[in-house]
Each structure stands twice: as structure tokens, then as C-alpha cells.
């Protein structure tokens, strides 16, 4: 009788269950109607099964988003777990869609599902990639903009994981400020 190691048949469970959402900009519909839940997963193997099955971000049409959020959190400011939160935002220039977008987004996903932020991973709600003609954006959403320790730890680890040069900074903005901004930029609460 051959003994098979459990490694061979047991999937590797993640700390959290995650939902991947897709947003397609159809102006005839409401914002919420354009948002669709693609799938949920809670193992390493199922994460890859989903990731390998869908289009990479750089192939999406302008106006589309992918959002990965912990199960039970909707990818919008209004969700109870997001409304006091904010995001570490990275704005990419047009050239970066070809050179950096897909690897930055995959790295972001790996940070989330792998719980890369140590004891502060519980403060992470999700991440969003926006495909836009004027410049794509990737953001990690956290639960509480007031928690300096959690927010800055997450920002430092995230910047390091993306391999961004020291001189390039990313900023953290509260969703409340983003929602009420008057111009095109939102003030940063933190910068790393």
C-alpha cells in the first residue's frame, strides 16, 4: 500500500476567504449594476485557478476594474468595513501599463492572499486596479485611516514588495477625503 503525503492532495488554505470583483463601465447602468462578483476562493490552488483563467489587467478595456476583497466586504467606500478607511494609491503613467501594471497587480494579490503585512494584515480590506486611459491605478484599501501604526506598516511593506525605488513615494488617502474632494487630487494623510 502506497502512503501518499497529504501535501499531494490537500489544498493549502488561506488565512482569509477572498472575493474577486469585476467592474465594467456601462454608462447606461448604475455604478452598482456594473459591479459583478466573479468568484470566491480560500486556498492557494483556487487562487491560481482563478488568476490563470482570467484576463491580465493590461488586456482589460479602459473603465474596467478588478477588486479583490475579503469575503463579506464589498469593494466600495460605503461598506461598513471601508467607510472609516483609506487606500495606499499608486498612479501609473501610460508607459507603465506595458512594463509594470500586471506584475504590480499580481504582487498586490500575493501580498493580500499571503497576509504579507504580518500582524497588521487584519487591517487590510482589499485591493483595486483601475484601468484608465489617463493612467491606471492600483490601491490597497485598509480599514481605519486613523491607525497610523497599521497604515504605515502596510505602506512600507507594500512599497518594498513592489520594489519601488526609495525616491518614488506612494500616498495614503482616506476614502472620506476622496469622496468629498473638489479638485482632481486628494491630500495624502501618509506618505512612504
Amino acid at each position: 500500500l502506497e502512503i501518499v503525503s497529504p501535501e499531494a492532495y490537500i489544498k493549502h488554505p488561506l488565512q482569509n476567504s477572498w472575493s474577486l470583483w469585476f467592474f465594467k463601465n456601462d454608462k447606461s447602468k448604475t455604478w452598482q449594476a456594473n459591479l459583478r462578483l466573479i468568484s470566491k476562493f480560500d486556498t492557494v490552488e483556487d487562487f491560481w485557478a482563478l488568476y490563470n483563467h482570467i484576463q491580465v489587467s493590461s488586456n482589460l478595456m479602459s473603465g474596467c476594474d478588478y477588486s479583490l476583497f475579503k469575503d463579506g466586504i464589498e469593494p466600495m467606500w460605503e461598506d461598513e468595513r471601508n467607510k472609516r478607511g483609506g487606500r495606499w494609491l499608486m498612479t501609473l503613467n501610460k508607459q507603465m501599463r506595458r512594463s509594470d501594471l500586471d506584475r504590480f497587480w499580481l504582487e498586490t494579490l500575493l501580498c493580500l492572499v499571503g497576509e504579507a503585512f504580518d500582524d497588521y494584515s487584519d487591517h487590510v480590506c482589499g485591493a483595486v486596479v483601475n484601468i484608465r486611459t489617463k493612467g491606471d491605478k492600483i490601491a490597497v484599501w485598509t480599514a481605519d485611516y486613523d491607525n497610523r501604526e497599521a497604515v504605515t506598516h502596510i505602506g512600507r511593506v507594500y512599497k518594498e514588495r513592489l520594489g519601488l525605488p526609495t525616491k518614488m513615494t506612494i500616498g495614503y488617502q482616506s476614502h472620506a477625503d476622496t469622496a468629498t474632494k473638489s479638485g482632481s487630487t486628494t491630500k495624502n494623510k501618509f506618505v512612504v
Binding site: 492532495y9 493549502h12 492557494v44 490552488e45 491560481w48 490563470n52 504579507a116
Partner: peptide, 20 residues
């Protein structure tokens, strides 16, 4: 403890089919 997986560990599963 938390189930943390580093990037190399996660990446080595990308093209490894689950047996069942």
C-alpha cells in the same frame, strides 16, 4: 498563528495542478 505565505511559496503553485 496567521497563515502567512511568502511570494516564492505562492508562485511555485501557479502552474501546479491540484491532484483532486
Amino acid at each position: 498563528g496567521k497563515r502567512q505565505y511568502n511570494r516564492d511559496f505562492l508562485l511555485c503553485f501557479q502552474f501546479k495542478p491540484a491532484c483532486i
